[in-house]
């Protein structure tokens, strides 16, 4: 079975669900996949944070150079020690001189971190992998390489969910309200839609409620394909909540952006939404 190198779509080609019922089959890799994986970690902005952690952990984990072997000599070519792996789940070992070696699954060679084009499986990743493996027992059938691939995809998904609005950032969410005390729904809908379409998402046509009890009905539209946000309601005020607001429907529930300077004030009625309050 071939394991894809993470690509821009971050589709994980082989998932835990595909491993049910037993141990993962021996893996083979697309040519250059390991090097590409390393390159991905170093070049993708989405995984830069992981990459930094990985490098930092690797730096602290590396043993001091063996006397008589300079770092230069390690960098000049592949420093490979053949050591047939007794346990296919063992990816690292420390030799008698304190050097940490990583196993290249493509070639079954044990490589030093300084080997060009090779991935050094740092302690951060490896320990997390072993912890999960220990907790999940036989159900955990991901290989270390697959685990790393999924970990990178996770990091990218986390970053994608924050584009174009990070829902955990009140300032970013509050900015959706705009700069007017009373919302102009046409202007706000256009501005918010542009944010999402510029980020590559599709937005539905705008629905304007024709049965609204207010003379200034809400404008609603869907965001298609976003991992966390799926609907906006932009209300100019005058409805059952009296004041202007923006409602964001997310996969974790409803967020409402309200204005503390609205007059009359926003009436929460019996909602249990998360509120982001601006003062405009």
């Amino acid at each position: 079975m071939s394991v894809k190198t993470p690509d821009s779509s971050r589709h994980v080609s082989r998932t835990p669900a595909q491993h049910q019922g037993g141990r993962a089959a021996p893996l083979s890799y697309d040519a250059g996949s390991l090097a590409e994986l390393q390159l991905q970690a170093e070049t993708s902005p989405a995984v830069q944070r992981l990459s930094t952690l990985q490098r930092a952990a690797a730096g602290t984990a590396r043993p001091p150079a063996k006397p008589g072997i300079s770092d230069d000599s390690l960098l000049t070519g592949r420093t490979v020690q053949r050591k047939p792996p007794d346990d296919p789940d063992v990816f690292r070992y420390t030799d008698g001189d304190g050097h940490v070696w990583s196993r290249d699954l493509e070639t079954d060679e044990w490589c030093h971190p300084a080997d060009s084009g090779k991935i050094f499986w740092d302690d951060t990743f490896y320990k997390a992998f072993m912890d999960i493996k220990s907790k999940a027992g036989a159900r955990f059938t991901l290989s270390f390489v697959e685990y790393t691939e999924v970990q990178l995809a996770k990091a990218e998904k986390e970053e994608l969910a924050k584009i174009p609005v990070d829902l955990s950032n009140s300032a970013e969410v509050g900015a959706l309200y705009g700069s007017s005390t009373v919302i102009d729904p046409v202007e706000r809908v256009a501005a918010i839609k542009k944010l999402f379409t510029d980020a590559g998402y599709e937005c539905s046509a705008t629905d304007i409620s024709t049965t609204s009890s207010s003379s200034t009905p809400p404008h609603l539209f869907d965001v298609i394909g976003h991992p966390a946000i799926f609907k906006f309601e932009v209300h100019p005020g005058g409805g059952i909540h009296t004041a202007s607001y923006i409602r964001i429907s997310t996969n974790k529930g409803m967020i409402k952006v309200i204005n503390s300077n609205s007059n009359p004030a926003y009436d929460k009625l019996n909602e249990k939404a998360k509120y982001v309050t601006v003062s405009i």
């Binding site: 669900a17 995809a153 996770k154 990091a155 969910a161």
Partner: peptide, 10 residues
């Protein structure tokens, strides 16, 4: 499985 393995992003 990914959520159980703490590998689900969200």
């Amino acid at each position: 499985d990914l959520a159980l393995f703490e590998l689900e992003a969200d």
